[in-house]
Design a binder for these strands. Structure first.
Lengths: 168, 168
DNA sequence: ACCGTCATGTAATCGGTTACATGATTCT
DNA sequence: AGAATCATGTAACCGATTACATGACGGT
């Protein structure tokens, strides 16, 4: 216990999800992720099992285990975890200017624009529709973070749609 | 030799860089990456050493080794590599709708918008300026890929700047 | 009762990152 | 000549993905 670990963005996702939603099993985390920040920063479900253990081993979380049946693990935020999250939120963030978009990479290396564009357009339009629906049912009051992130998601999807439309 | 490997985006970056620029040492690859697709899809320089070896072991590249001195390795594109690249270019691409932006993640989880925005703005403005300079010196003729990717890069930076400006 | 799908979890692998290390080269 | 920086390379580690596996549950 209390070994030290490097905290990655995934670590903070876990800490953040638990702070917002309270104690959680790995499966809960997976659910919350899907409902919330999942399409901003995706995480494989298997990592919702390993990462909390890592964090618990280092004292950021504590673990409670069900007695009978499945012996589900529930993770709770510890003082140390809350502090780490606070500190991270207060620090300036690295900047990401990489698109890291597989379609754009292909385009760069000479793929046929037309062929790419149709598939990309369909996907981005679908995502935009999903975000707009979500935005419709989000009152936008506290906490503001999710709403703001959604707004940026929409802006990004629109930019992609404009781009691929011009190539279609 | 000819073991099989999973080809990742990084694999195609290597194949693409060699096809465009001819045979290359790892250091050449690092250079070309920095000049070109590097700010679309970054790769650590160490991987420019391991990845070509992986690809050579699987028959996508061949390797020639300097006799004296440093015994630098030079990698050449093989038939198999060229075919793989062509096939990849022709296939439809996965879509990326994740922003995966550290700043946006912090915002989501409650970071103070003002504090974040100034740093993010500075970085995105700098990147935009860099792209615009590059766009200025790019005639935009064949191959079109790099030019188009740059155009999208600019659009993305503008979207980010608009977003963070509203929070500053 | 059976089948398919969703829920839940573990294990192994491996790509990618980080850290380290030593030659060249340039500048003062 | 010494220092600093750039070029070039290797090794180890580990987070993240992939693959596998079983339990629960709803429908027919």
């Amino acid at each position: 216990m209390m070994g030290d670990v490097r905290l990655t963005p995934v670590s903070y996702v876990v800490l953040g999800l638990i702070e917002h939603g309270g104690p959680a099993t790995p499966y809960d985390l997976k659910q919350r992720l899907a409902l919330g920040p999942g399409n901003l920063w995706s995480v494989q479900h298997a990592q919702m099992y390993s990462e909390p253990q890592r964090l618990a081993a280092a004292g950021y979380l504590s673990e409670r285990r069900e007695e009978g049946g499945r012996r589900r693990r529930t993770f709770l935020l510890e003082r140390r975890g809350r502090d780490a999250l606070r500190r991270w939120l207060a620090e300036p963030a690295a900047t990401n200017t990489e698109l890291r978009d597989p379609g754009l990479l292909k385009l760069y290396f000479g793929a046929e624009p037309r062929a790419l564009a149709s598939g990309q357009l369909a996907a981005h339009r679908a995502k935009l529709a999903e975000y707009e629906r979500a935005m419709g049912s989000d009152p936008g009051d506290e906490p503001r973070g999710p709403w703001l992130a959604l707004e940026m998601g929409i802006a990004a999807e629109r930019a992609w749609i404009r781009f691929w439309s011009a190539l279609a």
